[in-house]
Nucleic acid binder design. Sequence first.
DNA 1: TAAAAATACTCCATAGGTATTTTAT
DNA 2: ATAAAATACCTATGGAGTATTTTTA
Lengths: 140, 140
Amino acid sequence: MEIRQLRYFVAVAEELHFGRAATRCHIAQPPLSQQVRRLEEELGVKLLERTSRRVALTPEGAVFLREVRDTLDRLGQAVDRVQSMARGEEGTLRVGFFGPSALSSLPRAFRRFLGQVHHGAAVPVAGRQARRGRGSRLRP
Amino acid sequence: MEIRQLRYFVAVAEELHFGRAATRCHIAQPPLSQQVRRLEEELGVKLLERTSRRVALTPEGAVFLREVRDTLDRLGQAVDRVQSMARGEEGTLRVGFFGPSALSSLPRAFRRFLGQVHHGAAVPVAGRQARRGRGSRLRP
DNA sequence: TAAAAATACTCCATAGGTATTTTAT
DNA sequence: ATAAAATACCTATGGAGTATTTTTA
């Protein structure tokens, strides 16, 4: 079972027409029919009733449509989220400082920086150093 | 982005070792590396830190792992559900009757049947006939 | 008979395999 | 020196296209 097949199924289920669905998927009608058929075969479940005049969802198809839509939406959100993280718009920034500057200039600069950040929380950290490893992920 | 690639990524993220992950996916190591790399390229996000001695998740990879696991689980449940429906273990049964038998033998038989059904609800239906079309889906 | 899905075939993109190289400890 | 990931190359499965046939309203 591949995402492509799920998208094809959703297209057919929404259009109720293999030709239009194929156009929407930017492929020809025969391969679309073939992929949807394969999906049904792999599941062992008939998702669509087809005649040359009408395409309709079976009860199983209707349920599967809802679930697959949800799944694809979730997946899209997951992608958006990590891409957003990678661009530095989201994520966790850990900052540590010690020595004299910890009591004066650095905290002030840090507070000014926080004012420019959209969402995020500042958590005071006990001990000498906040954390090892890759904490900061600010772009220059 | 294909489901296969997501499964491969999950395997690597869980094993933190391309060789073992490849075994788990029943493929060789090079194509596994290739597919994971392609996934990262398509997303535009680095999901894993690799050296020849250590594989580790990036913060983005850790988030993506959770989300993808959820997504694949949901999808699996959707498949289970429609397969269960197709076997007649789940779904909606609509029963209609009218005429003299509606007041005697049929309701009694119907009640006896309900006693054998695991989950489901009986809803009285107004009007002469319950519903047109494919309502009943009992196997013989 | 006309509109639409299925079937038959062809082609090529790519998933996956094998052999080898690179890299970091 | 070794274990493990990356690279290079090859093969073959199958995804998608075109042409055609079948079906039903």
